[in-house]
Design a protein around this nucleic acid. Structure first.
Length: 572
DNA sequence: GCCGTTTTCGGCCCGACTGTTTTCAGTCG
């Protein structure tokens, strides 16, 4: 898929046009197109031009540019632009507080063309004296360069969410807040997060702001106003806090949850209907009368839309779906009836069956599958056929006295680097459920990896492909795999694909999940639990499913034990 | 550059905070 590549180029073009001082609406058009292409579920390289033009934000011109790039691997317009604007100059835009106007000014007046130049001249106070630039601006630029060097890259949701909750707890305890909510991309459950957005109501906003900028987490204060402040915390993340009146809480929550693209679409709809939306409410244009805003639902209702859950707010078709009454009823955590990927002491898990059963029952589950590693994963004390049969026997014994709960005897079988399976069919045949996955040879070619997964899916005894891209967010890139092909074969063979809920994995990702749904592939959400508290990772997995528009019926482990057993048999 | 049962041209989301200014441009989300 060239989608991400083309999106990046369009964003790059937008940067370059910005520095040139081009028409801001033209720039926005490139950014919007880039965003829409990123969220696309089909391969843009295989989409004909007239289909391309049906994608929102892509017209005659951009469709042509996409075609040109797909055909020739380059884009003349982009190449020309890069010649006009020195390489490195667009890097300046990544310095916080430094935008296109200032970058252009620095280039034209001081011939600054990269970060090194900028840092040197700022230190030597050579920027002062330019129109609108004095000492404070130099300071802020140096600060921004520092922040950039420290790396402000996106961090995994699983790491950021606990941090955000901790800040919320502190505010609740120390500041005079009434309502308090996480907003932004955390509320949309994006798998990686750039900053933490918090919204509050209070009778004394000033006091709240004052408490906020003095929290023990604070490393630096970027902005401190009466209703809005921004800090950098020790972990390097930016945290924004906004305080509004009770009567505006819903509108502010919608505004602050985003995404930006989603908000813009709503506001455009509002304008066409003679309305205006901002963080204070939804208003009638002609007399500025406030029609709503206390509840988030107000905004959608007054626009004539059903409530759109935060996980869907990416402007990837949810507004159209809402408008035409085709909004899916998203799966919820409470729909989950069991976990089909769990490790025990028999391999590298920490608990025996009893402890796992107790923990699962506490979460309202009706079943779990014990899927310890197969022998190929020596490091995880993987099981050979003999040990596996012993484990199965013990599971059967326990099942006999269990009431209202079942253990499935399963295995997480390693797909070896040469493409062969770690256990023979006559062993797999004995199991209630077989999960297969890749643990080695991550750097193989796309063809090799895809072939390994396909041959696993063609095996009638393999039910589930686990963590299908092998990524560990921030630590290991996904391996190169032809997801289109994988999903096609999954659909053909009735193989279920896993959303691994472990917060650093979260693969399938949201876009792949959406693709899977469109292709009719069944999904399972599993935690890959090794310690009982990891059962709680299910919430992360469900959020990815929701971001991929999945409903209860799309997901295997929302079904009863009996239905699951039948579904597994069906493949064979 | 996109888009249109009000338009094929003329619009295009909205507001807070900062630093530089004496009323506002730039940046950000």
């Amino acid at each position: 898929m060239k989608n991400q590549e083309i999106a990046r180029i369009f964003n790059d073009i937008a940067d370059l046009l910005e520095i040139k001082g081009e028409n801001p609406f033209r720039i926005r058009a490139y950014r919007r197109a880039a965003l829409n292409i990123e969220g696309l579920t089909r391969d843009i390289a295989e989409t004909p031009k007239d289909e391309l033009m049906k994608i929102p934000g892509i017209g005659q011109d951009l469709a042509g540019k996409i075609e040109e790039y797909v055909k020739t691997e380059r884009l003349q317009f982009y190449e020309d632009l890069k010649k006009e604007v020195p390489e490195g100059l667009s890097m300046l835009l990544s310095v916080p507080s430094l935008g296109p106007k200032t970058a252009k000014l620095f280039y034209e007046r001081l011939k600054i063309k990269d970060l090194q130049d900028l840092e040197r001249l700022a230190r030597e106070h050579k920027l002062s004296g330019l129109p609108g630039i004095k000492e404070k601006t130099e300071e802020n630029i140096l600060k921004g360069i520092e922040m950039l060097k420290r790396g402000m890259e996106r961090q995994p949701l699983g790491k950021v969410l606990p941090l955000a909750n901790d800040i919320l707890e502190h505010l609740k305890k120390k500041a005079p807040v009434n309502k308090l909510s996480i907003a932004g991309s955390i509320r949309r459950w994006k798998d990686t997060i750039k900053d933490i957005d918090i919204l509050a109501t209070s009778e004394n906003p000033k006091e709240v702001m004052n408490t906020f900028i003095h929290l023990p987490h604070v490393k630096d204060v970027l902005m401190h106003g009466p209703t809005k402040s921004s800090i950098i915390i020790k972990e390097g993340l930016q945290v924004d806090l906004r305080v509004v009146e009770e009567d505006s809480f819903g509108a502010a929550l919608a505004y602050f949850t985003g995404s930006k693209a989603h908000n813009i679409r709503l506001r455009e709809m509002a304008v066409k209907a003679g309305l205006k939306i901002n963080e204070y409410g939804i208003f009638r244009e002609k007399d500025d009368r406030k029609l709503g805003g206390k509840e988030e639902e107000d905004i959608y209702r007054i626009l004539g839309l059903p409530y759109i859950p935060p996980e869907m707010r990416e402007d990837t078709g949810e507004i159209e779906a809402a408008f035409t009454g085709r909004l899916p009823k998203l799966v919820e955590l409470s729909d989950i009836k069991g976990d089909l990927h769990v490790h025990s002491k028999w391999s590298d898990g920490s608990h025996d069956f009893e402890e796992l059963i107790d923990a699962a029952r506490e979460r309202g589950y009706k079943y779990i599958a014990i899927t310890d590693h197969s022998k190929g994963l020596g490091i995880a004390r993987g099981l050979n056929a003999e040990r596996l049969m012993e484990e199965k026997k013990e599971i059967e014994t326990i099942n006999k006295r269990l009431r209202g709960f079942r253990l499935l005897a399963g295995i997480e079988m390693d797909i070896r680097s040469d493409g062969t399976m770690d256990l023979p069919d006559d062993v797999l045949k004995e199991m209630d459920i077989v999960v297969a996955s890749i643990h080695s040879g991550f750097r193989q070619s796309k063809e090799q990896i895809t072939k390994r997964l396909v041959s696993a899916m063609r095996n009638p005894f393999i039910n589930i492909i686990a963590h299908p891209t092998g990524r560990l967010i921030g630590e290991r890139d996904p391996y190169d795999v032809d997801m289109n092909q994988i999903l096609k074969v999954a659909q053909e063979t009735g193989t279920v694909i896993e959303i691994n809920a472990y917060p650093l994995r979260l693969d399938l990702n949201d876009i792949h999940v959406k693709m899977a749904k469109e292709m009719g592939v069944q999904i399972v959400i599993s935690t890959d639990t090794h310690i009982t508290n990891q059962f709680d990772y299910m919430a992360y997995g469900v959020s990815i499913a929701r971001r991929g528009w999945l409903e209860k019926k799309d997901i295997l482990n929302t079904m009863s034990y009996r239905v699951i057993k039948k579904a597994i048999k069906r493949k064979q």
